[in-house]
Design a protein around this nucleic acid. Structure first.
Lengths: 333, 333
DNA sequence: TTGTACGCGTTATCAG
DNA sequence: CTGATAACGCGTACAA
């Protein structure tokens, strides 16, 4: 059974197809009466708007492509909420693509968005090398969320600052052997480590960085390595590059029967939902994901309005959320 | 700067536009030599395939619309993985839409997918009333995941069975006052409650059902109510309708200073990632999300191949994963 | 308000 | 069997 098209409505309503289109888009040039008549006819005929045809024909930019690195980290959901809210108030359609936590799908997902003819891409948590992001941005405007890429619109938080906040919090509690559970070294994700090292340096301490991978399981393994050291040498606190890794650290502590925060304090980064519950109660750095998403979406709107504007970076300030996984260092005998 | 189109390639390669299209789709009728020549030309010209135009023109069904209820519950990510894998091996494109955990966006998201001209919708965790799902299915074929809808292709697990497994596990540990933290009553999500009630009934016990809402916070509040009862009347175990609610129950226990599983045992449902880590270590029912997704995608393929086939339901069997949040009931004085 | 070219591939039909 | 021509899918936008 054939789909009802604008053509059908036009015929039935006794007007031209063009007018039907105009009525639907609510553009000036259609009298209120005809508009109502057209919409009523469409309704009666069970018409369903064809976004595909519309997007193909339209000149105006109407579509955000949104890339989410990972469906298993709710920071990205937070960012999506922020993006989504802005999209809604500005009548932008969202086309989504998702990646994998190790970044292996980044390139393919961006390409898919480009092929889908989105007008701008908002990409969260990209792990792609800077050069590739820049190259893509030359073809389809891109806004990087949570990672600053030089020469590309970016909405990010001050990770140096956030990491410093976390580290100084631990230092303030008397910790000296503070380890940093780091993400793999990739473009754009070094600041948390640097902030940690800077704060440690200021306190006259050397850093203790362990590079892990992007999974709670691997983080648990690596944290286990740290916590299995002999007590005189074991870190009294672990600062993890994100909440997922922090949960891994908590897992490791649980496996080893170490109390938190009695034997070891743990700080995460993101303030994801999973850090919040009373049973987890993770001290963490809040990067205000949904604000980041909002910022990014606004940068995207700006880019659509002026494709020649110079690249802009919006940097917001993270805050520390002290919960139950950090406490004063225990007296060492 | 104009986009490179098949027209441009055709001109440059000295062939017709139709042939370029055929070369790209790798359909018979193009000699190997010309095909290579065309692809090489396209490559040299920096051609990017236009999925939009392709989907508008194409008659063959090539697109899955995927609805995920919630980006903050990784069960849906598991299901997505299963769907995604099948889509990839069958060259189906995925168009995504996401909802909200309370179901308030279900209808709008489905409508968006329909407007996007997807050939079939695979919808996870739908909270829409049965009648609405059936009505939608009459317009665009739909496969319901994790919920059986009569008259609509469904891929689900045996929730009666899963709930019984969980309840009997607790009964076997000697628990008698077992409360069920239930989801709001909506079409299609009653079986877990019924399975619990059946198992309780078999043991000669009355059920203790508390209806909560779809958030960890609310679950914590409702569990708090249960656990704040005087000890002689307080449940010694809580079985929650999903892991998120179970975490809420753990939160409540933590707030009240109750030990788990010493003072109260907790069982979840889903075996989501967040239940797995050693620090959470939640006993739960595994619904094998990615298998469910795979099943659903296969039902979708079948539906595309034969739109007149009678609706099919695939029911898989859940399994109990015993971890650390359940233990023998403590002797009551 | 309307006619109509246009966006860009796809596919059915036709010629070599 | 290789390749070309032209109609088609469905809205949109601009000139008239």
């Amino acid at each position: 059974m054939g789909t009802v098209t604008m053509e059908d409505i036009a015929r039935r309503a006794g007007v031209s197809r063009a007018l039907v289109s105009m009525a639907f888009r609510d553009v000036p040039g259609v009298s209120a009466a005809t508009r109502d008549h057209i919409l009523a006819t469409a309704d009666a005929m069970g018409y369903r708007f064809n976004r595909l045809a519309s997007r193909l024909a339209r000149k105006a930019a109407t579509t955000f492509g949104v890339f989410l690195l990972d469906l298993r980290q709710d920071v990205y959901a937070d960012m999506f909420d922020g993006i989504s809210a802005v999209a809604k108030t500005n009548d932008k359609h969202i086309v989504m693509a998702v990646g994998a936590s190790d970044g292996s799908l980044d390139a393919a997902a961006l390409e898919t968005l480009a092929q889908s003819q989105v007008d701008v891409v908002i990409a969260t948590g990209l792990l792609l090398p800077d050069a590739d992001v820049v190259a893509f941005n030359a073809q389809v405007p891109l806004v990087s969320v949570a990672r600053r890429v030089d020469g590309v619109d970016s909405a990010c938080t001050n990770n140096l600052r956030g990491a410093r906040l976390a580290t100084e919090h631990l230092l303030g509690l008397g910790h000296r052997r503070i380890a940093f559970l780091a993400n793999p070294q990739t473009d754009g994700y070094l600041d948390r480590r640097l902030g940690y090292l800077a704060a440690m340096g200021d306190a006259g301490l050397a850093g203790d960085v362990v590079v892990s991978r992007y999974s709670r399981q691997q983080a648990a393994v690596d944290a286990h390595g740290l916590l299995a050291r002999d007590p005189a040498n074991r870190p009294t606190a672990i600062f993890a590059h994100n909440d997922q890794a922090a949960l891994g650290a908590l897992d490791a502590a649980a496996e080893l029967g170490l109390g938190v925060p009695g034997d070891v304090s743990v700080v995460g980064y993101d303030n994801s939902q999973l850090s919040r519950g009373a049973s987890t109660n993770l001290t963490t750095v809040d990067l205000h994901g949904s604000d980041l998403g909002r910022d990014a979406a606004e940068l995207a709107l700006r880019r659509l309005a002026d494709s020649d504007a110079p690249p802009e970076t919006r940097t917001s300030t993270p805050s520390l959320v002290v919960r139950g996984t950090t406490g004063p260092v225990r007296e060492v005998g």
